[in-house]
Amino acid sequence: MPNEIIEGILEAIRLIFTFDPEVWGVIEVSFRVSLTSTFLAALVALPIGSFIGLRKFKGKNEITNLINTFMGFPPVVMGLLIYLLLSRNGPFGELGLLYSTSAMIIAQFLLAIPIIMGTAKAAIESVDPILKETVLSLGANERQLWWELIKHSKKSIIAGFLVAFGQAISEVGAVIIVGGNIRWETRTFTTSIVLQTRMGEFGMAIALGVILISITFIVNYGLTRLQARVD
């Protein structure tokens, strides 16, 4: 077994530096799907989540509970639901999106929304209430207050993006169901590792795992640096 790990790491280095087209294809699909879904989810979830955090209204506790529940929503179940919706006999079957990166983006988008929404809401709520009052008493309207609080809690909000992206890139259950693990098209790191392991190609599987971890590390490192810079 240790031999296989070492072989896997050597294989990983070889695959990356020989620009193996299949590996680079997998990297490209993985990142395209996860970045797109996280970005789109942020566009939707950040305004809504921060708005929920900003205001007090009836039913806020229930909405909070709902968001928290969906934060831990099982990806496989999400994959199943999207599958049923997009399959030929499903309500959106005519769109023909099943087994495409679009389907994968939809699934990961829906999984990322509660994470970003929940963290944005918590970030806004955790701002010192005296700062909120100070900003209001200086004459800010709701939109100006909102912007001020976003600026103030950007670190926590970026942390939310990181968690959502981390979940998306390492997720396997949903993308394998709705993407179908089609070579050159919808194969990602994770689905590929599942396949290679099943076929006994441990070297390739470990290689992909190492690449996945390294790239995720680099992305996180970059975002963390950004997080430190914004302060």
């Binding site: 010192d128 709701e142 600026k151």
Partner: peptide, 23 residues
């Protein structure tokens, strides 16, 4: 309304004992 409230707040100022300043 919220809007009117903002307009009235703009006629007032509020200085507190322990100040908080923006970053």
């Amino acid at each position: 309304s919220r809007k009117e409230k903002v307009n009235y707040r703009r006629k007032f100022s509020f200085v507190r004992q322990k100040p908080v300043v923006r970053n």
